[in-house]
Amino acid sequence: MIRVTNLHKKFNTYHALKGINMTVKKGEIYGFIGRNGAGKSTTMNILAGLSRPTEGQCIVNGKDVSKLRHPSELAIGYLPEDPKFYAWMTARETLDYLGNSGDNPMTKEAINDILDWVSLNKDADRRVGGYSRGMRQRLGIATALIKDPELLILDEPSSALDPEGRSDVLRLITELKQMGKTILFSTHILSDVERVCDTVGIIVDGRLTMQRPLAKVKREMIVPVYDIVLEEPPNPWLLEALRKHPKISHLSSKETVLSVTTSEPEHFSLELMTFFASHRMEVSSFSRRKPDLEDIFLKEVNGK
């Protein structure tokens, strides 16, 4: 549904996107993560046909975004990071205004249904200017749904929502997937990604450094981490020796605390213990933990 090749975006001198390559397949939920300023919103804004790529190609719903004459040709549902409404319109009027352009006008019942979906019916006849941030977010989600599009691009759909609202959004996303829709969404809440996504993409500094099915990530990357606390800080040569150890794939140390991951978990703890024993290092604690997506994310973002 979306294919991005070598996408660049420059703002005057600032190079925000530096060659993004990504693919979103039909029917999947794609979680787009990255820290503040990594370029998620910039990418999604281009995919929604609102701003133009400096270089590269983006095919969305079969259309090349740089050849559009109007953003609505993409026939997608787009939720901007910070959706802006007319403060002097009510939510119902807003949906009536936005829903009645083009070919399929929206009936009063359809508007009511959507307002119900996002739990705004009670406040539907209040002016949007008086809405809270979370209520505006709900209205934004409603506007993304009005044309019942096949592809949704949602920029932080669960931001500013209360816990109930967040799980409503996740429920909505899974329901939409069951209806066969494709969804690309960005978020900072990694547990949400773990709950609903089929594929994760991590963007770091304008580049997509990882794009993998979530199941594969879980299988291959969520390997145990050993946290070892030593009695005294290790010597540099000891750290060096650990790094060279054939079974250790990653090591980080901070004063007396070491975190070690392995590519071969078989008998690994035994070998670690032997290593410390043979170097006569006192170990005050030794524990094993399963990392979550957050650790992977942090690792990815901090450049291994």
Binding site: S72, P80, K84, F85, L98, S101, G102, K147
Partner: peptide, 14 residues
């Protein structure tokens, strides 16, 4: 300035 045209544009206003 306020980006209030963004949603109308996305929903097909010309």
């Amino acid at each position: 300035r306020d980006d209030t045209l963004v949603l109308p544009l996305c929903s097909g206003k010309r």
